[in-house]
């Protein structure tokens, strides 16, 4: 079981309010990702759930019991830290066994669980090494191993992949997703990388300045961002946000259109513009186009290879059904 409810949680550090007031429900077995720019309070939120910080006000309820005053060790949660936080003076075996040792489990049971975790995580050959002798990915797996042996009611991940190189990150992302499918335990995952959020989450919580901007499944957030912040944050490359007379034509203060929802043509279209920089990825081509009458250049995604040279005149047509409209407060208009 791992149902976590945050009820009017507030957090202040001295005079600085990090989280004004926040409600959130996390269902048992869900993979929830907290995402937002750095300093948005997502790590603080995770540490509040872990019990590493006190809430200033409000309640944290874990599995129906008020855990607000419960010390971290007795909340039944396990955490994987950004720096892995392995114990450098202990072997991998001892690292993984440490929570069991603290729980005063019988040595035979400790051994069984450690070996089982090592098997799952492909660490069996490394059990007698020290963390210092392992690669980044292996350390990450040891940290996960240390978390799973406790059989916690929920896992907390604090930007666990940010210290890995790009290739490894993709691999570990898959491994963590697979782990979640197998264990079916609640996981709360903090990241600033919206790609990680989109690929792994059942439910994404977008945070900004301690305030939840939107909660929803990845595709909900992609299809119906509640405001301009979420619209700009979710999706890569970023959604084009257009203000001014062009937006007014659609009865909105701001309109948004994703790069993949604009058609580009050399002959005709709604907006006329000139090609700036183009980025060729092979699978796609991104064009930065300066359109007449628009302040900012637009990003356009064209599938496959498109050869359009710098300075060429082109025409862009947004697909109306994919256009997002926002009012003066930045909120979505339906």
């Amino acid at each position: 079981m791992g149902r976590i409810v945050l009820d009017q949680v507030k957090k202040r550090f001295g005079d600085v309010t990090v989280i004004p007031e926040l409600d959130l429900e996390i269902e048992d077995g869900e993979f929830v990702v907290f995402v937002g720019p750095s300093g948005c309070g997502k790590s603080t939120l995770l540490r509040l759930i872990a019990g590493l910080e006190d809430v200033t006000d409000g309640k944290i309820v874990i599995d129906g019991t008020d855990a607000t005053e419960v010390p971290p060790a007795r909340r039944g949660l396990a955490m994987v830290f950004q720096s892995y936080a392995l114990y450098p003076h202990m072997s991998v075996r001892k690292n993984i066994a440490f929570p069991l040792r603290m729980a005063r489990l019988a040595p035979a049971e400790q051994k069984r669980r450690v070996e089982q975790a090592a098997e799952v995580l492909n660490l069996t050959d490394y059990l007698d090494r020290r963390p210092g002798q392992l690669s980044g990915g292996q350390r990450q797996r040891v940290a996960i191993g240390r978390a799973i042996v406790r059989e916690p009611s929920a896992f907390l991940f604090d930007e666990p992949l940010s210290n890995l190189d790009a290739a490894l990150r993709v691999g570990m992302r898959l491994e963590i997703s697979e782990l979640h499918k197998r264990l079916k335990t609640t996981m709360i995952y903090v990241t600033h990388d919206q790609v990680e959020a989109m690929t792994m989450a059942d439910k994404i919580v977008v945070l900004q300045a301690g305030v939840i901007e939107q909660v929803g499944s990845p595709l909900e957030l992609y299809r119906r961002p509640r405001n301009t912040f979420v619209a700009g944050f979710i999706g890569s490359p970023k959604m084009n946000l257009i203000c001014g007379p062009e937006a007014a034509k659609h009865d909105a203060t701001t309109i948004g259109i994703r790069p993949e929802h604009i058609d580009i043509s050399e002959t005709d279209g709604a907006w006329k513009g000139t090609i700036g920089v183009s980025e060729h990825l092979g699978s796609d081509t991104f064009f930065h186009v300066q359109c007449d009458g628009l302040a900012e250049p637009l990003t356009v995604r064209a599938p496959g290879e498109r050869a359009l040279s710098y300075g060429a005149d082109v025409h862009l047509t947004p697909r109306r059904e994919h256009m997002h409209r926002f009012d003066a407060q930045g909120l979505r208009i339906d």
Partner: peptide, 8 residues
């Protein structure tokens, strides 16, 4: 940054 418990 810590909890009340660890501060006391």
């Amino acid at each position: 940054m810590a909890t009340q418990h660890s501060r006391s």
